[in-house]
Design a protein around this nucleic acid. Structure first.
Length: 968
RNA sequence: GCGUGAGUGGCGAAAUGGCAGACGCGCUGGCUUCAGGUGCCAGUGCCCGCAAGGGCGUGCGGGUUCAAGUCCCGCCUCACGCACCA
């Protein structure tokens, strides 16, 4: 079989593994898998069994592998999209062959803006278009041969799914956060049903909290009327309506979450300006979980990058609150992480939006520095002018001159509690209303921003940390200049000084230790059509009432127009107007919610796109139980702490979750939050949804422009040494750039292109062999042929290309072949377990290439090879397996296990070095002793030549691999 | 500025502190072919050399070590994320 090939043209060789044959094999096996129910994953109980009607074998560990599910876009797939799906499929198939009960399926994240925009443009209902896109995508993905349980697929727009999304919303709505309650995992603080709060308030075991609008301080529950009671409860809910500053995007006609607004104050989608507006909107109290969302990052197996991004987004920072007396009035509260520097505070700064500025002194105090007034006659004029200036500045402008400090004196003076010195209070836009208290004590001696401001406005600098030179001293050092009659910090280090200062402040009631967060509550309503309606109605008091389970799902009404009312992108004074409000019959309903039929008004907002993706991992487990979100037995089996082969003490969750890093703080934070609420309320047993997270890299591509900057088809560009950059298109020199694949860049390569030219298995092998999975890499169609050659050679090692007959023999393999085989098995197993598919494939190629050197290929060896190839190239593996005489699919065949005896080589190459440089080699028995090796090395002509007569100072022997002779 | 990660042939990339460049693409030569954008065989880090052989080589500069792509210190560059967060 290894003769040089005959002269038969390729298309006349009937059994050559070409794209055409691959297509036949692939489609036949895909049909066969479907027909047999090969990918049916059995649950341990309930209706979902394997194809033979059996429940999960209790002896098998469970393994749940999951992809970040796709949005069914109409644009179609390019070869970058399947990368993660192929990788999880390889892992899932490998684990299944290793004996795990593997759960793997793929759903669709189908609510969202593109479908709505398509609907607006065409007038077609977004559901019709979305479902058509799903069908197209499912067909494209099926052709990859992914081992997904088809029964477990779904879309977030399915009524049966929306029903539970709305149900979860109601659990959040009907819950409050009890800071003192103990969780099952031993931690303190958890969500509890709001009914329990109501019962405690009614029983008087919990006092009515102060500070709720319309509820007098110290009121008894019994004295409150119906509306006031509901206000108290509503103020505790984890999903609540509040008139809060929100991100209003007039150009989109909707409000957005903080996470959806870019640093320069524009919408992440659509890139239109976003304005802060006070609007009554739904919020989720994610801030109640800020500590747990930060702390629990330590217990999950996630990339450090994502964990650090989440930590930073939550932005926990500990320090102190300090209250300053404002001369002639109120208190000014600040937050600082450096209370130890309070003796160095020489002025104060409040954000332009700070309420202290609503009233300012009538005249400048005596001795007001000329430069502080901004040239204004009075503080009121100066502040009003500065507020106008600050409000008109975009985030981009502010960012651009972050170094240049602007601001103005407010006329207020505030007394430093440790020195008794009155400090001028400025307003400046380098202090943000949204963080801390919106006010700071400025310590120019210890903070660079304060130092810049002090320099600009000629304010005094007091250093409280020992050091040298001008500028802020931000490093560590001994405390100086920090003593009053009752407190002496001098000589202490920073942590000790912080503690002493906090104790001093607390003792006088002017401050205390405080933790602040950057994280804000999650704005949860959108003025869009294509999303989940809120399962809530409003009564005549305009207070929200949860609909009963029996009313779920609340489905979308038919409306004449799907678009929200949009405005000029910079029309900041406009207001949102939701499309759902256009159907009066839907908005106004008569319902009997227990006290007779009454008129109610529906909520016309919809949930953000993230809602559906917050809990879809649970839906894969159980789409069958009609009365519970997820059957507790299934939850424990697939997700419970320590399930399957998760390490003892793990918090549970999906065993492997693969997706792009772009969801690091949006989806992944929201999903953790919901999962924790569900955990607190007892619906799931794991406190984290995703145990291991893996971020795959992106497949990128070159794009080419001509000298007008117009993109030319990338697949028609050729290398051309004569062109200035080395590339030409039809003889015209072009410029190369590197980035995404996209229609507009004319560089898209689709999976269908690859199916036609090479077949799905070749595409799978190529994508897995391009490099480590977490690295982004350029697509190179030219290189794909290498993967096809590998599969062709594999095929030829089993099947005669001309006759289609088997070429394997049942003879025992020779010793050398067995050594290569078992080394390959050991290496491939280790690589697969570590998700290093690229090096696994390299090892498989080495084994395969070895087999091509043999006259006849031993069955035992090639069968092991076929099994090892199966997770990566499943169709050709099934075909060869079946041609080798096996009736059952190899999907459950055990993955080969290496025989230790063959892992020890017969001879090893011992490297002979002089001064660390290789000067010779010797083939030796692995058992050769150190002395013998040393003698061997010293006698080696190469070593002798390199020594050139020099004395040998020392000889290092690492038997049997290396000898290093060190000359004097 | 802060955080995370990465810099190795023409290209994608391999390398428990122990032979740098596995495997693949491309390229060169050969075989097969009416033909080849097929298949097969061989070679391929750079420099000198006909060869044998030698020199150099993992972003830069130091260090530890018998031995460094790998460990330590200091830089540089790039990617991603965050960014006046008190």
């Amino acid at each position: 079989m290894n003769d040089v090939q005959t002269s038969t043209p390729a298309d006349e060789i009937p059994f050559r593994y070409t794209a055409g044959l691959a297509a036949q094999i692939e489609q036949r096996w895909q049909d066969e898998w479907d027909r047999r129910g090969t990918f049916f994953t059995p649950n341990p109980s309930g209706p979902l069994t394997d194809a033979e009607g059996r429940h999960a074998d209790p002896a098998k560990p469970s393994y749940f592998v999951m992809d970040m599910f796709p949005y069914p876009s109409g644009a179609g797939l390019h070869v970058g999209h399947p990368l993660g799906y192929i990788a999880t499929d390889v892992v899932g198939r490998f684990r299944r062959m290793c004996g795990d009960n593997v759960l793997h399926a793929l759903a669709f994240d189908a609510f969202g803006l593109p479908a709505e925009q398509h609907a607006i443009a065409t007038g077609q209902h977004p559901r019709a278009n979305t479902e058509a896109n799903i069908a197209i995508m499912q067909r494209q993905l099926r052709r990859l041969g992914l081992a997904h349980d088809p029964r477990r697929s779904f879309a977030t727009i399915d009524d049966s799914y929306v029903r539970w999304t709305q149900w979860i919303f109601l659990q959040v709505f009907n819950a409050w956060y009890d800071e003192a309650a103990v969780r099952p995992d031993g931690g303190v603080g958890r969500a509890r049903p709001i009914a329990e709060l109501e019962a405690e308030l009614a029983a008087g075991t919990r006092p009515v909290p102060a500070g709720v609008d319309g509820v007098p301080a110290g009121a008894a529950w019994a004295d409150l009327d119906r509306v006031a009671r509901r206000r108290v409860l509503d103020a505790h809910r984890l999903a609540y309506l509040a008139d809060t500053p929100v991100n209003w995007a007039p150009g989109l006609g909707t409000v957005l979450a903080n996470e959806e607004v870019t640093a320069d104050g524009r919408s992440e989608r659509g890139n239109v300006p976003v304005f802060k507006r006070n609007l009554r909107q739904w919020n989720m109290r994610i801030t109640a979980y800020a500590d747990r969302l930060t702390d629990d990052l330590d217990g999950i197996d996630w990339p450090e990058k994502v964990r650090s991004m989440q930590r930073h987004w939550i932005g926990r920072s500990t320090g102190a609150t300090v209250r300053f007396d404002v001369v002639g009035g109120e208190l000014l509260e600040v937050f600082t992480t450096r209370p130890d520097t309070l003796f160095g505070a020489t002025f104060m700064v409040v954000a332009p939006e700070h309420p202290l500025l609503d009233e300012v002194p009538a005249a400048w105090p005596d001795g007001t520095h000329e430069a502080w007034t901004g040239g204004h006659e009075s503080p009121a004029a100066a502040v009003a002018d500065y507020r106008r200036y600050a409000a008109g500045r975009t985030a981009v402008e502010r960012q651009a001159d972050a170094g240049r400090k602007t601001g103005v004196f407010t006329g207020h003076l505030a007394v430093n509690p440790v020195t008794g010195t009155p400090l001028p209070v400025f307003t400046a836009d380098y202090v943000l209303m949204g963080y801390g208290t919106g006010a700071i004590m400025a310590v120019p001696g210890g903070d660079e921003r304060d130092y810049d401001f002090a320099t600009t406005f000629e304010l005094p600098v007091v250093y409280t940390v020992d050091g040298e030179g001008d500028g802020a001293r931000t490093g560590d050092g001994a405390i100086i200049n920090s003593a009053n009659e009752g407190l002496d910090l001098n000589g202490l280090d920073v942590p000790a000084a912080k503690a002493a200062m906090i104790a001093w402040l607390a003792a006088r009631g002017v401050g205390e230790e405080t933790t602040t967060y950057r994280l804000r509550d999650w704005l949860f309503s959108r003025q869009r059509y294509w999303g989940e309606p809120f399962p809530v109605v409003y009564d005549e008091d305009d207070q929200p009432i949860a609909l009963p389970d029996s009313a779920l799902p609340v489905t979308l009404p038919e409306v004449p127009d799907f678009s929200p009312r949009t405005y000029a992108p910079d029309d900041a004074d406009s207001s949102p107007e939701a499309p759902l409000g256009r159907n009066d019959d839907w908005v106004h309903v008569t319902l009997d919610l227990g006290d007779g039929p009454r008129q109610y008004r529906r909520d016309t907002n919809t949930m953000p796109n993230w809602a559906g993706s917050c809990w879809y991992h649970l839906r894969y487990l159980d789409q069958v139980s009609p009365d519970v979100l997820v059957d507790p037995a299934l939850d424990r089996y697939w997700l419970g702490p320590g399930h399957g082969s998760q390490p003892a003490g793990s918090v549970g969750g999906v065993d492997l979750y693969v997706g792009g890093v772009e969801h690091a703080v949006l989806h992944l934070l929201y999903s953790r939050f919901w999962h924790k609420v569900l955990y607190d309320l007892g619906y799931v047993s794991s406190s984290e949804p995703f145990h291991k997270l893996f971020n795959q890299g992106y497949i990128q591509a070159y794009a080419y422009t001509d000298d007008r900057g117009v993109y030319v088809p990338a697949d028609e560009v050729e290398e051309d040494a004569a062109a200035p950059e080395g590339y030409a298109w039809h003889g015209e020199a072009v410029h190369r750039e590197y980035g995404k694949m996209g229609k507009s860049l004319k560089n898209v390569v689709t999976p269908d292109d690859m199916y036609t030219a090479y077949g799905a298995d070749t595409l799978r092998v190529y994508e897995m062999s391009m490099g480590p999975l977490d690295l982004s890499r350029p697509w190179d169609t030219r290189s794909v042929v290498g993967s096809q050659r590998f599969l062709q050679r594999l095929w030829r090692n089993v099947v005669d290309e001309r006759t289609g007959e088997l070429v394997v023999v049942d003879d025992a393999p020779d010793e050398a072949t067995l050594r290569v085989l078992h080394a390959t098995i050991a290496g491939v197993r280790a690589d697969m377990e570590a998700m290093r598919e690229n090096t696994a494939i390299a090892k498989l190629i080495v084994l395969n290439n070895h087999l091509t050197t043999l006259d006849r290929v031993p069955r035992a060896v090639v069968e092991a090879l076929v099994l090892m190839v199966a997770p990566i190239a499943p169709h050709i593996a099934e075909e060869l397996w079946s041609r080798l005489g096996h009736e059952r699919s190899l999907i459950d065949a055990p993955f080969p296990v290496a025989d230790e005896r063959y892992l020890v080589a017969e001879t090893v190459t011992c490297v002979l070095q002089v001064a660390g440089k290789v000067r010779g080699r010797a083939e030796v028995d692995p058992q050769t002793g150190a002395q013998e090796l040393e003698a061997l090395a010293l006698a080696d002509p190469g070593v002798q030549r390199a020594l050139a007569g020099r004395e040998v100072r020392k000889v290092i022997v690492r038997a049997p691999h290396l000898v290093n002779v060190v000359p004097a």
